[in-house]
Amino acid sequence: MERKIRVLIAKPGLDGHDRGAKVIARALRDAGFEVIYTGIRQTPEQIANAALQEGVDVVGLSCLSGAHNQLFPRVVELLREKGAGDVLVIGGGIIPYDDIPRLKEAGIEEVFQPGTPIEEIVNYIRKRMEERRKEG
């Protein structure tokens, strides 16, 4: 049996707009992934612990409040601390282009802007998971 791809979709920060996150969750489910959605207003600690307990391959962070520069890197940091640094962390939401290099440097491996076709996200995750499995 093939390993399923398990994804945690999480919304750090204080904004309560999770329409986008939910649309992504649906799309990933329709792509055959198992998606754990943890709801709005999550602290990085809650997100990292949930990722750890759920044994996910991917954490998708969505933030519209503008606090991504603090919150996204913190999630990566905590995952590494907890021995789950192998989890692929990606982000989305309202992220200014100028912030992306810094986020990538902090370990957020890809940032998807509004308007990204969902297929692109699905294909990206699939491709990365295949690569990882080949690496072992």
């Binding site: 990933l28 792509a31 198992e34 998606v35 754990i36 759920e54």
Partner: peptide, 14 residues
């Protein structure tokens, strides 16, 4: 249909 799932029970217990 897709073999995928949305697991949302955790929201209430987060």
């Amino acid at each position: 249909f897709s073999g995928g799932a949305i697991l949302g029970d955790r929201i209430r217990m987060q």
